[in-house]
């Protein structure tokens, strides 16, 4: 999975490309941990994300919890398959999905 960051002032855009699963989730988790200081708006761009598994959900939930304290977080370009996962798991109610 590729992670492309784009920081614009307080707004951080992270685009994910590939699969967010057990093997790749730790990478995203590490990336977020090091980049969220001072960020008030986080955008996760899922346009090129193929699928997400529970390991990925864990990281997304962690990011959501962090951003709830210091600003806001939203997800863009969520495809049907990932959306289905969010729906199954109730994440649609927690996340802001555009």
């Amino acid at each position: 999975m590729d992670i492309i960051k784009n920081l614009d002032g307080n707004k951080l855009v992270i685009a994910l490309e590939g699969r967010l699963d057990t093997s790749t989730a730790p990478n995203l988790e590490a990336e977020l941990k090091s980049s969220l200081d001072g960020v008030e708006e986080l955008v996760l761009d899922f346009n090129k994300l193929e699928y997400i598994s529970s390991a990925g959900l864990r990281v997304v939930l962690g990011a959501q919890k962090t951003m709830s304290k210091q600003g806001e977080m939203k997800l863009t370009g969520v495809n049907d398959e990932v959306m289905e996962v969010f729906e199954i798991t109730g994440f649609v109610d927690i996340l802001t999905i555009e």
Binding site: S54, A55, L57, K65, I88, L95
Partner: peptide, 15 residues
């Protein structure tokens, strides 16, 4: 549950 209350775990098999 809300984001703050959510525990991670068990979600995988649930899915």
């Amino acid at each position: 549950l809300s984001a703050e209350e959510r525990k991670i775990g068990g979600l995988g098999i649930f899915m």
